[in-house]
Structure formats: structure tokens, C-alpha cells
């Protein structure tokens, strides 16, 4: 922030806040899911439901947010992706302002997989005490299918998160690009990024309205709308 003139704003604050909250939810959900067992299952559910709310925000922000947050701006055509892949081994290849073509594909892939994974969790039960809010609304077959999806995706997602961190390290150590720093401060050095690629503002007002709306929507989707679990004794047959 001291060298404000020598840096350009790339990532808006809603996107940065989103990224770190999402990282917290996904890491927390993954760790409590893999190692927490029954005692951490309530936390697992909270983390997972938090991730769902955040995903809804990210999808909408990818349409109405500033340019570097927009899917239409960062999703590459296959030819551009291919061209980028050829420059990947070059240490001094030009730094992208927002997502590079490969990173863009990775981001969308990660969001999609985590979206499927988190959603599947809404329909399953641990057959003991906890269940997703929509478990009671679906047939046993659907719940079984969701359970299969949820459990089989757990390790692939762990690998995906590992690859994400390895990629960040690769850019830091091999290419000298400080991507983590940019995701914290929102800024990249002016000598690397042309002014035309920076963003003018974080669209704060729009972001605040959207956050309130998405929070309400997520609350409705996860708490209000799901049918009450039946509490009669015949519901345990």
C-alpha cells in the first residue's frame, strides 16, 4: 500500500475476501471430513454449507463483478490455452493481470468439482445423528447416489487442493510471480501489469448488496426451505 503508484489493483476486495473464506471453508470441511469423524461432523456441515453460500456468490460475482473476476473475461479459448501451455516452461513469460489461461481453467474446474461435492453433501446422512438439510426430501436411492459421489470425491479434492498450492509455489519459485501476495493485497507491480488490465474499483456497493442477497438466499436454501425432519417414532424405521 505504501507504493500505491507502483502497483495496480487487480483483484477487488470482495473476491479476495471470498477466496480466503472459501479456502477456510474448504480446508476446514476437508480436514473435518477426513479426520474429524463423528465428533467434528457438525463443523464439517457448517464448513460445507458456508462453502455453498460462497459458491453462489462467486458464480454471480463472476458475471457482475469487476473484469478480472468475470468468467467471460478470463476463460480462454482452447487455442489461447494451448499457446499459453507452450510458454509455461519459460521463466520470464509475461505475467497475467488476472488468471492466466491455465489458471482460469483450473479455477472453473475446482469450483465445479467443489460445487458438485458440497451439493451432494446436502442429500446424505451419517445414519447416526447428522444429515444434510435435504436428506429427508429425497429417496434412499438418491441419498445413496449422493453419498457415493460425496465420499468418492473426497480424495480427488484433496489432490486438487494440493495441486493448487503446488501451482502457486511453482509460479513463486520458478517464475517469481507473487500470486499469494496479490490475492491478499489485490495488487501487482505496475512494471509487470499494463494499466489497461487493472480494475478501477471493487464495486463495493454492488458487492455489499449482493452479499446480503446471497446470504439470505443461502439461509433460505439450507435452513428455511428444507422440509422438517419428521420427529415421530416411525421415522426411525
Amino acid at each position: 500500500m505504501i507504493h500505491r503508484d507502483s502497483e495496480r489493483l487487480i483483484w477487488d476486495w470482495p473476491l479476495r475476501l471470498w477466496h480466503w473464506l472459501f479456502a477456510l471453508c474448504v480446508t476446514g470441511a476437508w480436514m473435518t471430513g477426513q479426520w474429524g469423524g463423528f465428533d467434528w461432523r457438525q463443523w464439517h456441515i457448517w464448513f460445507g454449507q458456508g462453502a455453498i453460500g460462497l459458491l453462489i456468490f462467486r458464480v454471480i460475482w463472476g458475471i457482475v463483478g469487476p473484469r478480472n473476476a468475470r468468467f467471460s473475461r478470463f476463460l480462454p479459448r482452447p487455442s489461447r490455452l494451448f499457446t499459453y501451455l507452450k510458454t509455461l516452461p519459460k521463466r520470464n513469460a509475461a505475467e497475467y493481470a488476472g488468471h492466466n489461461p491455465l489458471g482460469a481453467v483450473a479455477v472453473v474446474f475446482i469450483l465445479a468439482v467443489l460445487g458438485v461435492h458440497a451439493t451432494s453433501g446436502l442429500f446424505i446422512s451419517d445414519d447416526i445423528l447428522y444429515e444434510g438439510p435435504w436428506y429427508v426430501a429425497v429417496s434412499d436411492e438418491t441419498a445413496d447416489f449422493a453419498s457415493t459421489v460425496h465420499h468418492r470425491l473426497a480424495w480427488p479434492i484433496g489432490i486438487l487442493l494440493g495441486l493448487h498450492i503446488i501451482a502457486i509455489l511453482f509460479y513463486r519459485l520458478y517464475k517469481g510471480q507473487r500470486l499469494t501476495r496479490a490475492m491478499i493485497t489485490g495488487r501487482k507491480p505496475a512494471d509487470r501489469i499494463p494499466d489497461a488490465k487493472s480494475i478501477a474499483s471493487s464495486r463495493t456497493v454492488l458487492a455489499l448488496i449482493l452479499i446480503a442477497l446471497v446470504a439470505a438466499l443461502a439461509w433460505w436454501l439450507l435452513v428455511v426451505a428444507p422440509p422438517e425432519p419428521p420427529a415421530e417414532f416411525d421415522s426411525w424405521y
Binding site: G37, F38, D39, D126, D127, I128, T148, H151, R152
Partner: peptide, 19 residues
Amino acid sequence: IGRVGSTCGSCHDDFRLDD
């Protein structure tokens, strides 16, 4: 009640197929 559930879960973790 929570502790009973915990023993169920702990056994499921190791001895029951997840999916």
C-alpha cells in the same frame, strides 16, 4: 447421547464402507 453416537461413528470410520 453424543458420546454414544461418537462410538458408532468411530466404528463406521474404520469398519464400514463409506459409499
